[in-house]
């Protein structure tokens, strides 16, 4: 732990979280005794190859998946084991999610302004329709979508713009923690950079903490304060972004770092070989 972590308060702490999927008599272990903390105003990057359980952990926190055992506490309140929906809505107001696929994360039959207003209304945020209107407009402004576009339908926006709208929906209620589940994976490189820069700005301006789930290590490095490396459900190591990238402790992390594609052709080839070997070892 570095000094900066100690001075900040933990916003979310995940303790000994296990999550199993039982299907057809087989037990798939998505998370095995995972523990980490996210401090206020910090971006925590969760990396790992596909199938390592990154998304399952994110969904556990937001309540889409149920944890098999372990605890998740947010601001000191326990999130696992909440039964009633009302209690849940009240507690979850400060956690929001940005989804992976901008094409399917917005309801095609609703105007984008309506999508955000509805989200606020369901969560009982804002006193009346007027206030919610204003909050939605603020959210649009923050993600750089002109407010006049609020009465258009999702189909008239590009992928990057839709992802911005998805981010606006997450930010409209001024949450304390946003879970970004592979939120840049479906976008092309230049749009990825825009979105990542935007998240960075939002984090600086509003002090919102992010759980940034991704397999794109270079993006995670750019954005994250701290990083956790996940492999087959086990959290192998956590540390600040610098620590992980400068001196990775775990051999798997080293392999993962070696697999980052670079611009020179020969290195690129070697990296490609590396990642093939990597997936071969994990299959075993």
């Amino acid at each position: 732990m570095s000094k900066t972590d100690v001075s900040k308060k933990a916003l979310l702490s995940v303790n000994d979280l296990c999550m199993y999927f039982d299907s057809a008599g087989r037990r798939i272990k998505a998370a095995e005794h995972v523990s980490f903390e996210i401090n206020e105003g910090e971006v925590f990057g969760l990396v790992g190859e596909s199938g390592s359980g990154k998304s399952s952990i994110g969904k556990c926190i937001i309540g889409l998946n149920r944890a098999t055992s372990g605890s998740i506490s947010f601001h000191g309140t326990e999130l696992t084991g909440i039964k009633s929906r009302r209690e849940y809505t009240e507690k979850m107001r400060d956690i929001q999610m940005i989804f992976q696929d901008p094409m399917s994360s917005l309801n095609p039959k609703k105007q984008v302004g309506q999508i955000i207003r509805d989200a606020l209304k369901i969560q009982h945020i804002g006193k009346d329709a007027k206030e919610r209107d204003k909050m939605a407009a603020d959210a649009f402004r923050r993600v750089g979508i002109p407010v006049e576009y609020a009465d258009r339908y999702p189909r008239s926006f590009s992928g990057g713009q839709r992802q911005r709208i998805g981010i606006a929906r997450a930010l409209a209620g001024k949450p304390k923690l946003v879970i970004a589940d592979e939120c840049i994976a479906a976008l092309d490189a230049s749009v990825q950079a825009q979105i990542v820069n935007m998240i960075n700005e939002i984090k600086k301006e509003t002090g919102t903490a992010f759980l940034f789930i991704s397999h794109d290590l270079s993006m995670v490095r750019f954005l994250s304060d701290r990083i956790g490396v996940l492999h087959l459900g086990y959290l192998l190591e956590t540390g600040t972004a610098e620590e992980i990238f400068r001196e990775p402790m775990h051999p798997y992390t080293r392999k993962l770092l070696g697999a980052i594609p670079r611009c020179q052709c020969r290195i690129l080839l070697r990296a490609a070989n590396h990642s093939v070997r990597l997936s071969a070892t994990t299959l075993r």
């Binding site: 937001i62 809505t89 979850m92 999610m97």
Partner: peptide, 10 residues
């Protein structure tokens, strides 16, 4: 995913 999105906000 928009159904999941609706679920996450309760």
């Amino acid at each position: 995913e928009y159904i999941q999105a609706a679920r996450t906000i309760g």
